[in-house]
């Protein structure tokens, strides 16, 4: 065990020295994400049918659809957190299990116990655990990197707080900082903007754009149709099946939205407003 641990360490040191992040391990031509024919059923009741989805280039993708459309389930199925009735998922051309280091995940805020006795910095450090692998402890490099990530979400001054004392928006930022600390290539975020204040939402959006500019791919489950065209350059419309996916400019159309949401007036109005706003800005 000693030898393998020291081997790990030298490897990590070498990596830290040249400072280059891991490049995607698959062949360069392989798509970022390839979801093939995925069906998910809870107790024989399908929640996702036959989803086929290929994302070739890095993008900032919104996963949109009505309640119960299977948005979170899609993310969880991709990450292997729920069993698939059929289908396969590849990230950069390899099964997800082999690409865990390239994947960042932001679960829904309610999924953890905020009474847990850890500080904000501890939570962000958890983002580095995947890369550290078994047994190795986060060292000074991980700590300063985690502080940097906290800095980027504007939470550095709260690093020593217990997480239960944070507001909803601050909790969400902590989760985002943790995702940043993962140094992933592809991020999956489950409703990061649900129940947060406007300032946090703006901060999250700025961060998403940063990620995109640095060539990462981000999938975001999103519930607010009005902001879809503003936030995302790629849209995945879901309602138990894949309704449409593609660049937001073409996918986020009233016809597609009606297919996903039905004829409910308020939603279509909101979306129409968003589409018009986009057209004005172009």
């Amino acid at each position: 065990m000693t030898t393998s641990a020291s081997l790990d360490r030298t490897e990590a040191e070498a990596k830290a020295k040249d400072g280059a992040p891991d490049r995607p391990a698959g062949p360069p031509s392989s798509p970022v994400l390839d979801v093939h024919d995925v069906t998910v059923a809870y107790h024989r009741k399908p929640v996702l049918w036959d989803v086929d989805l290929t994302i070739d280039r890095p993008c900032l993708a919104g996963i949109v659809g009505p309640n119960g459309a299977g948005k979170s389930t899609l993310i969880k199925a991709i990450l292997g957190l729920v069993p698939k009735a059929s289908g396969s998922v590849r990230v950069f051309g390899k099964p997800v299990g082999a690409q865990r280091r390239l994947i960042g995940y932001v679960p829904q805020r309610e999924s953890v116990d905020w009474d847990f006795p850890v500080t904000v910095l501890d939570v962000v450090l958890m983002g580095t655990y995947g890369r550290l692998g078994w047994f190795r402890r986060p060292g000074r490099a991980e700590r300063s990197w985690s502080m940097e990530c906290l800095e980027r979400v504007g939470m550095a001054h709260l690093a020593d707080r217990q997480i239960g004392q944070l507001s909803g928006g601050q909790q969400q930022r902590t989760f985002l900082a943790r995702a940043l600390a993962q140094r992933a290539e592809v991020y999956f975020m489950d409703e990061p903007m649900a129940g947060v204040d406007a300032a946090t939402e703006a901060a999250i959006f700025a961060l998403l754009r940063d990620l995109k500019t640095s060539g990462k791919t981000v999938f975001v489950v999103h519930h607010d149709l009005r902001t879809v065209p503003e936030y995302f350059d790629y849209t995945i419309l879901l309602n138990m099946r894949l309704i449409a996916h593609g660049p937001t400019a073409t996918t986020f159309s009233p016809e597609n939205l009606r297919k996903a949401y039905g004829g409910r007036l308020a939603i279509l109005e909101a979306a129409g407003e968003a589409v018009r706003a986009r057209e004005r800005s172009e």
Partner: peptide
Amino acid sequence: ERFLIEYPEQASAMADLS
């Protein structure tokens, strides 16, 4: 498929592929 298109809001309540 048609049902999901016509009544998407009912989808999660009624769709049962089994």
